[in-house]
Design a protein around this nucleic acid. Structure first.
Lengths: 108, 108
DNA sequence: CCGAATCCTTTTGGATACTG
DNA sequence: CAGTATCCAAAAGGATTCGG
């Protein structure tokens, strides 16, 4: 979570600070559907390395956007899910999804 | 402008490909208000270097999101403005602005 | 004023090997 | 399965200089 003195003046800049990068946005897009396991995310996000995925997940977890649940099984199972805060970002992802759809359609 | 075979399947990925980076989003946020001059943008975007600003502007210009107009004066004046396509991204930036506002307010 | 070009540092990220 | 650790290559980014 960002502390108060790290928050930029502009609200957009605040948002950008949390999810203004390629992989974080794509991870959030996935988690908008349902919880995902680590390797599931890795397969889905074509081209991402394990390191980058781990780092990205840690970062947005620290920012309180997602939760990480470890199920003590063998083999281990770890699930990533949206937090309540992360859920509030849905309108942003929806807007991006709609724009991308129209763009590909040639509607715009 | 992206060609058809460069477009990813997911609409969000398409959008991310165009504006999924810190500075591009902040540039678009500014241009949502009105056209801006180069040095004006540079002053507004605290911490950006001339090179990064130039590169970012070229990139989103090539993608058709903004226009670049050179006024043949002395000293030269160059204005960057939203294209019609760029204008259609307003809902995305609006969603980010609203989220950032609520986040800073502690409303969420 | 608005860059392009160059050089150089810093950061990011991929590959691999290893672990509970 | 879900990581961590290490090393190294690639890319991004800063500083500076120069030009129309």
């Amino acid at each position: 979570m960002l502390t108060k003195d790290e928050l930029p003046e502009c609200p957009v800049a605040t948002t950008v600070q949390l999810i203004g990068s390629k992989w974080k946005l794509l991870i959030m897009r996935n988690l908008m559907m349902r919880p995902w396991r680590f390797n599931e995310l890795k397969k889905s996000l074509e081209g991402i390395s394990q390191k980058v995925l781990t780092d990205s997940l840690r970062s947005i977890e620290e920012d309180g956007l997602i939760t990480r649940t470890v199920y003590p099984e063998v083999p281990p199972r770890v699930e990533y899910a949206l937090s309540d805060l992360g859920e509030t970002m849905r309108p942003i992802l929806d807007a991006m999804q709609e724009w991308g759809t129209n763009y590909k359609n040639g509607t715009i």
